Simulated assay, not measured.
Amino acid sequence: MPLYLEIIICVSLLIGGAFLLIGSYGLVRLPDIYMRLHSPTKASTLGITGVLVASMIFQSHLKGFFSIQELLITLFLLITAPVAANMIAKTALHQRTKSLKDTKGQDLMETIRDREAPTKPPQNP
């Protein structure tokens, strides 16, 4: 394997590992659920992307053609992580999970919790 590919793979793994470490630390360190959602959805997604890019480069060199499996996994993670975080935040809001006083948007939380479900418009016969 050429030296430049090894360097690119190592740098990508180091960057991905650093983001994963930061995301894990944030998940443990941040105090409430609303703040904790940022850590796994942002830092950990970037970390997994770095690791998968390194794997894609390595597998592409071994096979001799472009490896698409890692690209599909990365795309799936980039799409599903924000959606999952949004669903967790909505569940926490509707379950009235307490937030800290330092959490921004306290006034918006009550507005979102108490809003009515949209009604269907009347059907024309």
Rank of each mutant, 00 (worst) to 15 (best):
Y34P: 03
R36D: 09
M56H: 05
H38W: 09
L100W: 05
M35L: 15
L62S: 14
S24N: 14
I15Y: 03
A84F: 04
K104H: 08
L72R: 05
L77P: 00
L14I: 15
S44Q: 10
I48F: 11
R96W: 05
K63H: 12
L30H: 05
Y34H: 05
V53D: 01
C10I: 15
I88V: 09
L78M: 13
L13P: 01
F76T: 05
P40N: 10
K104C: 10
T45H: 00
N86W: 03
M109Q: 11
H94T: 11
I33E: 03
P31Y: 13
I88E: 00
T41Q: 11
L21I: 15
L108H: 06
A54K: 00
S12I: 02
L93N: 02
A54F: 00
L30Y: 11
L37E: 07
L71V: 11
G64P: 02
H61L: 14
A81F: 03
I73L: 04
L14F: 12
F58H: 12
L72Y: 06
S12T: 06
A81I: 05
L14G: 10
T103L: 11
T103R: 03
K63P: 03
Q106A: 06
K63T: 13
A89P: 02
M56R: 06
F19N: 02
Y34E: 01
P31M: 15
A84Y: 01
T49P: 06
R36V: 11
M56N: 04
E70K: 00
A43S: 12
T97M: 08
L52R: 00
M56K: 04
D107W: 06
T80M: 06
E110K: 07
A18L: 14
